[in-house]
Design a protein around this nucleic acid. Sequence first.
DNA 1: AACGTACGCTACGTTTACGGTAGCAATACG
DNA 2: CGTATTGCTACCGTAAACGTAGCGTACGTT
Lengths: 121, 121
Amino acid sequence: MSGNSLVKPTHNINIPRPGSAVRGSKTGQPIMVLFDLLGRRWAMGIIWNLYETSCTFRTLQTRCESISPTVLNTRIKELRAAHIIINTPNGYALTEQGRSLYMLLSPLGDWSKEWVLHLRE
Amino acid sequence: MSGNSLVKPTHNINIPRPGSAVRGSKTGQPIMVLFDLLGRRWAMGIIWNLYETSCTFRTLQTRCESISPTVLNTRIKELRAAHIIINTPNGYALTEQGRSLYMLLSPLGDWSKEWVLHLRE
DNA sequence: AACGTACGCTACGTTTACGGTAGCAATACG
DNA sequence: CGTATTGCTACCGTAAACGTAGCGTACGTT
């Protein structure tokens, strides 16, 4: 499945692809494909943690405080297939696209702080 | 449509709350709490679909092409608890905060289109 | 060579989330 | 009365995620 020649997976990973499939969107609108990709546990957290510095599998695992290696590996495969992260000699890093995606996610940081304050009331 | 029928959840829903818990973040950083909330299936899709017009439970279910009522109801409870959506006489709608959150998610629409084009190569 | 260490990653069993279908109670209207 | 639509729940099977353990490789040190 998904003619992407990655390492043979333990259990089949279902990488969101535009135009077909993706959980729930028959039309395969790009935004829904993206939401499918980002709406998986730890996906955005990984992007967030990779922006400052690239890092190895294990340090990434440490930064995401409690992610299992199984899920981390799955997310890595998905995000690599999506060309959002890449494996460099220095470890995993955001691609150019990944960095541009981070720039869009970045404002959520400030928003979440305001949001938390508002929820406290 | 009756206003607020009382909430009697079948299975306990675990609503992300700042400061404690949330899947994987012991520190409870706001951004991680938000990622926990948005990184659940259909969460962002619901926000996306509610921006144009507010709509009822069933129409929302229709707009999200294949969401089960169980999950939709769970997401609604979570997003309501987070003050991102609200139940109005006209159906469910984004709150002021929800709309400001949408404004941040909105650029992802264009980004995803570019991203899809890049993936096709 | 033998040792320790860190690396990316997998196996596997348990728990949790999600999907799919059915259906209930409440409201509205004929 | 009947029917239709609403929000929402029950149930159950499947898929995703967690937690722990460990493999194989590549280093550096002694």
